[in-house]
Design a protein around this nucleic acid. Structure first.
Lengths: 357, 357
DNA sequence: CTGAAAGCGCTTACAG
DNA sequence: CTGAAAGCGCTTACAG
């Protein structure tokens, strides 16, 4: 069946297990065992089979192997967008860890409520993967319910969703840390700047950070603060517009807490353009641990994305393994163990200082 | 065969084609035709089958379908790293286009010569995908030869490799454009800054940009320039170190052409730290069209990454389709058509100006 | 228009 | 230690 190459193709048909078996003079069952490192094969036989496989540059067909075993060896990672630093970093680390565990990664980008709806409606991941990682996706209640129809294990990274296992930082505490830092420096007018998707669906991390900021301002007796909360539509000019609005207030803030480092960077650059010195005239800080914060020397709350990815990968791998082992008992120990909340770290740099008198 | 749920699992076993066939009172052959939209099924039958599939929330098993059809519906995208803006942007756009064509994307990160060697040695993509996109990977001649063993079609994005179909910008011309811009402003001492991997393997875009810079400096009678070429190891401090070295020269440059926008940004920030005004004391420009260049108002040569991705996707899709159609003739029209060189664009911003007298 | 059957390339009890 | 055979879930000539 593997005779001459197909016409029209310069790629020769790859060998299959039957070819190896024939060349090695054994059955395909033995080839399978030998190559998968399963017991029950003589050492000499195993060596011979491996040599033949090597010579024919044969590798086991994942398609067939998985069909037979009822698993795919693949994990889907679903992100709103791949480009932003947070997602690129998260996915990059995830891919690395999953690869080490022998799992391939399939990427799905579902930007906007419509795409998310379509994704869940079409269930594209279904049967294509052993598990799905949802990276901080805002979902409607209805969409959450549809998750079960995916028919695979789901892990949430960078947020929380229903009772699914998840890995995240405590965004409420992140905001508290930021506000405490600025209050500690002597600021009393502390603005919060964030961006909105064009999307209606609430984004949990965003809600929590805004809530944490509000809570903590009240806690320090600095509320009410609603006029200091500015939301701009996501885009390269969001930070500039937000700062312009804040500076137009009768009593402008002396410090800005931005939802992300990218936003903080844009605010800091805009401050320069407006002739304000950072931090003398305005303190600026963000959240993430983004390289741009390092480059521009901005204070930030590092949310350790690489660690979040590592924990997420560990959770996924455990789930896949437990399914492979088909654990008895009706209870899934893994799912109940994994509500992982990682620490965040305040990184003080040159963009925050006491307000000038 | 799809009786009660497995013990230990709260996920019910998904229906298979046989379940649908039984419920609809037809053979699995008919189910297959009906669901795949193939001809030869009565309209009433098709409708009924679709209704049953819907009710059982059945979707065709990609594993089985692909095994049967001899294709996977998947494309592998191989990048050195996913995190840098260029790769994140390229992959993000690729995933989108491939998805529209019904193809899933598998991500492989092969950072460093060792990983690349291992990737090619283990041929992980083999039989897992219908095609592979190599994103600007520096490969040794030996590794290039091993590509054939992948057993799948290969397309190169952001560079050129052997006789493989590829999509790229002309990096020689990119450097010419940059040098011409700076010379046109009156600069005569124009440095080039770049980063090296720890890696020995030559990176084509890098070599081309350096060569183009050198060529064009000579062309304008401004050579020899070797002392103005600074290579620093990749990292967050590369730009700062590079500028420090240039400023230590007896006759420092008045303009810096950086390999990338990220590097240009680091150089510009370092210039500020050193008390130099940009562009009055030093002109700085990069390559990419990176958001940070926009943020910091840096002149750049935009290499239109999204368009490169679109062309790459189109090439891959054509290759996959042509293979599916099993074109006769021994010649592959697609492979020979696709040496796509896209235009680049000079974007002049505030970081370049005539040198001060 | 429809079905029985072979085949895609494996894995794994089961029986030696 | 090894093999024959059933099965994973499809697709597709082939024959009605």
């Amino acid at each position: 069946m593997n005779g001459s190459p197909q016409p029209g193709s310069h790629l020769s048909t790859p060998a299959n297990m039957a070819d190896v078996a024939r060349e090695a003079g054994v059955s395909i069952a033995t080839v399978s065992r030998a190559l998968r490192g399963r017991p029950g094969v003589g050492e000499a036989t195993r060596t011979r089979v491996q040599a033949v496989a090597e010579r024919l540059s044969y590798v086991i067909s994942p398609e067939a192997s998985h069909l037979s075993r009822g698993e795919t060896g693949r994990v889907a990672v679903v992100v709103p967008l791949l480009q932003p630093w947070f997602y690129a970093t998260l996915v990059s680390a995830l891919v690395g860890h999953l690869r080490e565990a022998g799992l391939d990664t399939l990427i799905y980008q579902v930007d906007g409520a419509q795409e998310r709806g379509r994704f869940l409606a079409e269930l594209p991941a279904r049967r294509k993967v052993d598990a799905v990682v949802l990276a901080a996706l805002p979902l409607t209640p209805d969409q959450r319910d549809r998750l079960d129809l995916l028919g695979v294990r789901v892990v949430v990274a960078g947020g929380r969703l229903r009772d699914l296992p998840h890995v995240r930082v405590d965004d409420l505490a992140v905001a508290h840390t930021a506000v405490d830092h600025l209050v500690g420096l002597g600021h009393r007018r502390i603005a919060m700047v964030r961006t909105s998707d064009t999307d209606e669906t609430p984004w949990e991390a965003d809600l929590q950070r805004a809530r944490g900021w509000r809570e903590r301002m009240d806690h320090h007796g600095l509320g009410p603060v609603e006029e200091l909360l500015v939301t701009e539509e996501l885009g390269p000019r969001a930070g500039a517009r937000a700062l312009d609005r804040l500076l137009a207030l009768p009593d402008p803030p002396t410090a800005v807490f931005a939802y992300s480092d990218e936003l903080a960077a844009a605010v800091a650059v805009r401050a320069h353009e407006r002739g304000l010195r950072v931090p003398e005239d305005l303190s600026v800080m963000g959240v993430d641990g983004h390289p741009v914060a390092d480059l521009l020397n901005l204070t930030t709350v590092d949310q350790h994305v690489a660690e979040q990815a590592a924990e997420t990968a560990a959770t996924v791998i455990a789930l896949v393994r437990s399914r492979a082992a088909d654990l008895p008992g009706g209870v899934d120990p893994v799912a109940h163990r994994h509500d992982v909340v990682l620490d965040h770290t305040l990184v003080v740099r040159a963009s925050t200082a006491p307000p000038s008198a």
